[in-house]
Simulated assay, not measured.
Amino acid sequence: MSFGDPNNPYGPPQGQQPGYPQGQQPGYPQAPQPGYGYPQGAPQGQPGYGYPQAPQGVPPQQGYGYPQQPGGYPGGPAAPRVASMGRRFGARLIDGVAFGIIYFILAAIGVAGSVGAAQDCDPAAADYNTCINDASSSIVASFGAVIGVLAVVGLLYEWLMTGLVGATLGKMALGMRVVKVDTGQKPGLGSAFIRWIIPMVGSFACGIGQLLVYLSPFWDKSGRQQGWHDKAASTMVIQN
């Protein structure tokens, strides 16, 4: 019996090697066919692996970088400009000059009244010395009253302006304002009072404590140049 014999009904068809399917040659592996390896059916041109893709029609979300902080303050991508110490010193100087003018006017009124009272004393009168002493006491009392008035005015000025407006006249003139660190909003009366009272307590030690409070932003490591009074009130000073 011979292969390829047309008279042999059990042999392979003529032209085909025995023992192998048609189209396959002996000794060589068959080429891989589709359906193996990577999954089929993925849309062409679309990545099937790696980072997950956002659904079509949905805008990309901000998922990387620094977390967005309320008001965009330090730590966020829209951090404001922190006010320099030079500007802050200039604002204090402007406010101090304004208070100096008020103090001078009030003191001049008190002294003028006391001097007028001393001029009314009659040198020939028996109670002349008593009259002069009373006039001198009046001058001292006038200065004391002026200092008391200025203390009250200073409290109301610094406290109310910072809490309700966010800036004193000096800060307004130099384009600065005080804000809450976490929200960027005005401090409010509570935080403004804390911010005011801390340097005032320091002023009782011959003003040394107050000076240290106002210089403390130089030692702040947060990048916000917060003084001790700012940290206690959770505030910071920024440029507009």
Results as ranks from 00 to 15, higher is better:
residue 190 G to I: 10
residue 71 G to D: 01
residue 33 Q to Y: 04
residue 45 G to D: 10
residue 183 T to E: 00
residue 225 Q to V: 02
residue 12 P to Q: 05
residue 98 A to P: 00
residue 10 Y to Q: 13
residue 234 S to N: 14
residue 128 Y to H: 13
residue 168 T to Q: 06
residue 16 Q to W: 04
residue 67 P to F: 07
residue 22 Q to F: 09
residue 6 P to C: 00
residue 219 W to F: 15
residue 96 G to Q: 10
residue 174 L to E: 02
residue 164 L to T: 11
residue 126 A to V: 06
residue 238 I to H: 00
residue 228 W to I: 13
residue 110 G to E: 03
residue 1 M to R: 06
residue 62 Q to G: 09
residue 125 A to P: 03
residue 194 I to F: 04
residue 52 P to F: 11
residue 99 F to K: 06
residue 189 L to G: 07
residue 19 G to R: 05
residue 87 R to E: 12
residue 171 K to V: 06
residue 200 M to S: 08
residue 107 A to N: 12
residue 34 P to W: 05
residue 162 T to R: 01
residue 67 P to Y: 06
residue 18 P to E: 12
residue 47 P to N: 11
residue 168 T to D: 06
residue 138 S to Y: 04
residue 61 Q to W: 03
residue 142 S to A: 15
residue 8 N to D: 15
residue 30 Q to C: 02
residue 109 I to G: 13
residue 80 P to Y: 00
residue 202 G to C: 03
residue 90 G to N: 04
residue 214 Y to K: 08
residue 103 Y to W: 13
residue 56 Q to V: 11
residue 93 L to P: 02
residue 160 L to N: 03
residue 200 M to V: 14
residue 125 A to D: 13
residue 189 L to I: 14
residue 192 A to V: 08
residue 170 G to M: 03
residue 168 T to P: 02
residue 181 V to I: 13
residue 23 G to Y: 07
residue 25 Q to C: 02
residue 226 Q to E: 08
residue 102 I to D: 02
residue 1 M to F: 09
residue 80 P to N: 08
residue 239 Q to S: 13
residue 47 P to W: 04
residue 43 P to H: 04
residue 85 M to T: 03
residue 197 I to R: 00
residue 44 Q to I: 12
residue 225 Q to L: 14
residue 215 L to D: 07
residue 146 V to Y: 00
residue 33 Q to E: 13
residue 148 G to H: 06
residue 79 A to E: 12
residue 22 Q to R: 11
residue 172 M to A: 10
residue 208 I to W: 08
residue 206 C to P: 00
residue 89 F to C: 09
residue 54 A to Q: 13
residue 48 G to C: 02
residue 16 Q to L: 13
residue 233 A to T: 02
residue 163 G to H: 09
residue 214 Y to L: 14
residue 84 S to R: 04
residue 206 C to M: 15
residue 52 P to Q: 13
residue 219 W to S: 15
residue 183 T to Q: 00
residue 229 H to A: 07
residue 37 G to W: 06
residue 5 D to W: 05
residue 91 A to D: 02
residue 65 G to D: 11
residue 133 N to Q: 14
residue 75 G to Y: 10
residue 8 N to T: 05
residue 54 A to K: 06
residue 1 M to T: 11
residue 160 L to Q: 03
residue 1 M to C: 08
residue 15 G to S: 09
residue 195 R to S: 02
residue 59 P to L: 12
residue 116 G to D: 14
residue 232 A to E: 06
residue 175 G to Q: 07
residue 93 L to M: 15
residue 221 K to V: 06
residue 25 Q to G: 10
residue 207 G to E: 11
residue 159 W to Y: 12
residue 154 G to A: 14
residue 156 L to F: 15
residue 192 A to Y: 01
residue 212 L to E: 05
residue 44 Q to N: 10
residue 177 R to E: 03
residue 14 Q to Y: 07
residue 50 G to L: 08
residue 163 G to S: 14
residue 123 P to T: 09
residue 8 N to V: 09
residue 95 D to Q: 10
residue 153 V to C: 11
residue 177 R to S: 00
residue 146 V to I: 12
residue 61 Q to M: 15
residue 232 A to C: 06
residue 8 N to C: 08
residue 64 Y to R: 10
residue 64 Y to C: 01
residue 188 G to Y: 04
residue 39 P to W: 04
residue 138 S to P: 01
residue 26 P to C: 07
residue 45 G to K: 08
residue 145 A to E: 10
residue 222 S to K: 07
